[in-house]
Design a protein around this nucleic acid. Structure first.
Ligand SMILES: [Mn+2]
Ligand SMILES: [Mn+2]
Ligand SMILES: [Zn+2]
Ligand SMILES: [Zn+2]
Lengths: 135, 135
DNA sequence: TTTCACTTTAGAATAATTATAAACTAAGAT
DNA sequence: ATCTTAGTTTATAATTATTCTAAAGTGAAA
């Protein structure tokens, strides 16, 4: 994803392309593959690796703004921290608790042949499959 | 589950059947159906409903001891609080985010016909299906 | 009964996240 | 180009869930 696209992405979401948002968006979206991260890992990158320091509150604000705009999704993982995902399409996960690593599974690589109907007057919003790994 | 069984359950897990543990175990296991709860909901019960007040730290200690002993499982739910489950068998969940309610799905009510093989030298420990509901 | 490892408890500490409010800035209006 | 202001950043405080601490209490073996 190019810088021009990043500016478009922000503006089309009603987010002013501030210096901080553009920097974070470049780090998150200017790459070949999607990935998973936590606010802590993101903050570490901007504290250590990057020259510019971005306030932790801004990282939280920005991640939430991107999530609300649909540019990030959240993955529920056992543990304290919240995991975010730059893959916003419907997909599943392997989880390696040894390394705390999430690995994407394409939605077409899992086929569910039998599923119960939703209770009450409810409908199924989406189905998430989470496969825990061991050695 | 009867009181005598609760005492057995505790003793066979190497847990002394203290007044607090027996009270909590009776509340958790002395019922027909399994259910889901949070430490907060459990604490509310013993603060309001029950005559005896149990320290919050004891509730945490006991829930962890029961989990370690295999009498409780933990369900990962989006949000801040940790959900526990008195159903320790392999099963799946519906989740109603409107009411924050978990509903069990029997393991046989979901059949997965295609699943990717585990990466690297890893194996699949277990598969959890989480079905989000909407209205 | 005596003993002591195990347990409970109040309160402090920690960790992740959110709120606050003052300083700053992108961008439309003049 | 400057003005204006709503949107944004930031340091810091506050909140929330959970864990730790260490002193007082207790189940159960001897
Ligand atoms: Mn989590
Ligand atoms: Mn959670
Ligand atoms: Zn993913
Ligand atoms: Zn359950």
């Amino acid at each position: 994803m190019k810088k021009i696209d990043i500016l478009k992405k922000l503006r089309s979401s009603g987010l002013r392309p501030t210096k901080q948002r553009v920097e974070i968006a470049k780090f998150l979206f200017e790459r070949e593959k999607t990935f998973h991260f936590t606010v802590e890992s993101l903050n570490k990158f901007f504290t250590k690796k990057s020259a510019s320091k971005i306030a932790l509150a801004t990282i939280y604000n920005t991640v939430h703004a991107f999530k609300t705009a649909g540019h990030l999704s959240e993955v529920e993982v056992r543990g304290n921290k919240t995991y975010f995902d730059t893959n916003v399409s419907n997909h599943h996960h392997f989880y390696d608790s040894d390394t705390s690593e999430l690995i994407d599974i394409d939605v077409n690589d899992i086929i569910i042949q039998k599923i119960p109907k939703a209770p009450n007057g409810k409908k199924i919003k989406n189905v998430e499959v989470f496969i825990n790994l061991k050695n």
